[in-house]
């Protein structure tokens, strides 16, 4: 029988109670579905003394259409609920497709929107058992001094692997965050650092409570990912695209990636794609400088670069033709 490290579980009923409970306990972590955190606790990667279980916080479990046409999605909404929601499936296919492609149905039953956005970064030197990691002298992200992915460098290259972030980012998502200093909101794309060891810009004690997306009106969107096991895996590369077509041109396009860098990347310099007839090669030509996978998975970076470009090409073509 394998025991977990000793910890205490606190079960608040409101966001306010959750934030207060975090402040009242040393070395606390928030936990919702637990499909990411519990694995890391079991592997001895993290050993919090207190878990603040926010599964019972009812106020963060709703999906509400906004007056201005957008949608407010509670951070506690499960991925199965999100994928099955009528308005999301109809107006925001990229989000429903991304939610449906996270792990397996048993995970999605409990895994939440907030958990997927705050997913820990992943690396083949990090997501391993204690004996595996100790025999490798640990790594920069966890108890060690060297990033085995790039030993001569000074940063961690673990990859952000949440599927929802790019799909929400192409709809200009904002996140609402509660913490010891009150409530604040910021664009989702600004919640992340380009650092695998500290990829979230959340202050101590802060928790995500909601994501607000703009109206999906007029946008055609989708999500595509490549993974080792088609039924369950994290992305080797994932891409979300939202575009608007006008004749043979694009009138707007937004493209975001996951699984390739230490943060979800919103593709820059897409303005040029709006000049002249839509040219998918001009789109994929933007990738090499911005989409930069490192050897953090069993599949080599070259494969992930190619697969990111091919997914982008196929998805952009499909969305353009369907428009």
């Amino acid at each position: 029988m394998e025991y977990l490290p000793d910890f205490k579980v606190v079960r608040p009923a409101t966001v306010q109670q959750a934030v207060a409970a975090y402040a009242a306990h040393a070395d606390a972590r928030y936990i919702a579905g637990g499909t990411d955190l519990m694995v890391n606790v079991r592997r001895g990667i993290v050993a919090p003394q207190t878990l603040i279980d926010i599964g019972g916080v009812a106020e963060i479990t709703a999906i509400d259409a906004q007056q201005n046409g957008g949608v407010r999605i509670g951070a506690g909404v499960t991925l199965n609920e999100l994928a099955a929601h009528g308005l999301i499936a109809k107006e925001y296919p990229a989000i429903a497709e991304a939610a449906r492609q996270v792990a397996a149905p048993t995970h999605r039953q409990v895994a939440t929107v907030g958990g997927n956005l705050c997913l820990d970064t992943r690396c083949l030197y990090y997501n391993q058992s204690e004996w595996w990691r100790v025999s490798n002298n640990y790594c920069l992200k966890n108890k060690g001094e060297v990033c085995h992915v790039a030993p001569s460098g000074s940063r961690c290259f673990a990859a952000f692997s949440g599927d929802l972030a790019p799909a929400l980012m192409v709809f200009d998502a904002e996140v609402e965050i509660s913490g010891p200093n009150g409530v604040r909101s910021l664009p989702l794309s600004e919640m992340y650092n380009d650092d695998g060891a500290a990829h979230l810009k959340l202050e101590k004690g802060e928790m995500l409570t909601a994501v607000i997306i703009k109206s999906g009106d007029g946008w055609r969107s989708g999500y595509a990912k490549a993974r080792v096991r088609g039924s369950i895996d994290f992305p080797l590369a994932g891409v979300a695209i939202a575009l608007k077509r006008q004749g043979d041109r694009l009138s707007d396009i937004r493209v975001a990636f996951t699984g390739t860098n230490s943060y979800p990347v919103m593709l820059r310099k897409t303005e040029g794609l709006l000049q002249g007839p839509f040219d998918v090669d001009a789109l994929t030509a933007l990738l090499p400088k911005q989409i930069t996978p490192m050897p953090s998975t069993f599949y080599p970076p070259g494969y992930r670069r190619k697969v990111a470009a091919n997914l982008t090409r196929a998805l952009a073509r499909r969305l353009f033709e369907e428009s």
Binding site: T35, M38, V39, R42, D53, T106, Q109, V110, S129
Partner: peptide
């Protein structure tokens, strides 16, 4: 040992879930 295989699947309120990632409490 990590939510990847499904061998520990049980029903909680009728829905399949992984008992290796779920706290009993």
């Amino acid at each position: 040992d990590g939510g990847e295989c499904g061998a520990c699947t049980v029903l909680i309120d009728g829905r399949p879930q992984l008992s290796c990632l779920t706290l009993a409490a």
